[in-house]
Structure formats: C-alpha cells, structure tokens
C-alpha cells in the first residue's frame, strides 16, 4: 500500500545528545520548565506595570 520506508528504523533508545540532558524526558522537562518560568515572568511583568 505504501512504498518501503526510506528512513532507517527508529532506534528506541536514541538519545537527545544535548549537553546536560541525557534523556528525552529530560528535554521535555526542560521545555516545560522554561514554559513555566516564562509564564511566571509574564505574570510578574503584568503586575509590575499594571
């Protein structure tokens, strides 16, 4: 039904290879932490300039 996949099979344990973040859960956690920090900073920003 579809042509053979041109990509290599995805290794289940492929690491993010990002300094300080050894697992994908760590990468997602980092992105979430940045999100929380940004929203918190925007809340403080709003209060300060309101």
């Amino acid at each position: 039904m579809k042509p053979p996949a041109d990509h290599d099979p995805v290794p289940a344990d492929e690491t993010p290879d990002v300094p300080g973040l050894r697992t994908w859960v760590g990468v997602y956690g980092f992105a979430f932490a940045v999100f929380v920090a940004v929203v918190a900073a925007l809340t403080v920003f709003t209060r300060y300039y309101a």
Binding site: M1, K2, P4, A5, D6, H7, P9, V10, W24, Y28, A31, F32, V34, F35
Partner: peptide, 30 residues
Amino acid sequence: LPLALIVVCAVFLPIYRRLGVYTAYEYLGQ
C-alpha cells in the same frame, strides 16, 4: 503551544517516522 509540542514530540512524531509516511493522513489510512 509548548505543551502541545511536547505531546507531538513524544507521541505523534515517533509514529510518523516509524511508519515512514509522507503525510499525516496516510497514517489514518493505515
């Protein structure tokens, strides 16, 4: 948006790559 991208990364993208599809809708067919 950041929360949605985390879900896309963890769930959607690996499945699209594993199946080697060209489009998201090709996956629905499978």
